[in-house]
């Protein structure tokens, strides 16, 4: 799987929510595009990731 352009080997079946938590993302501060389409926040739990997926994750920091 590619995440923000970097290859990551997926071994076990994992949901997007689990993956984000495992990688240390705060899921309240992210937006995620999978294979070119936005993943609605309400579907993070049921969205299963596959090794062929391309993820783009934007994690916001405060300030403006």
């Amino acid at each position: 799987m590619y995440v923000n352009g970097q290859q990551i080997i997926l071994t076990d079946e994992i949901s997007l929510q689990e993956f984000l938590q495992k990688e240390g993302y705060d899921t309240q501060k992210v937006a995620v595009e999978k294979n070119g389409g936005i993943v609605p926040k309400t579907l993070f739990h049921e969205e299963k990731l596959a090794d062929s997926d391309k993820l783009e994750i934007v994690s916001f920091v405060g300030g403006g």
Partner: peptide, 26 residues
């Protein structure tokens, strides 16, 4: 200003599908 609000707005508008968003972080 707030990171959660940034994510909330971006997600809500992108899920709608037709808008372009120019956001800021950092």
């Amino acid at each position: 200003d707030n990171a959660e609000n940034k994510a909330l707005l971006v997600n809500a508008l992108l899920e709608e599908g037709r808008k372009k968003i120019v956001a800021a972080s950092g």
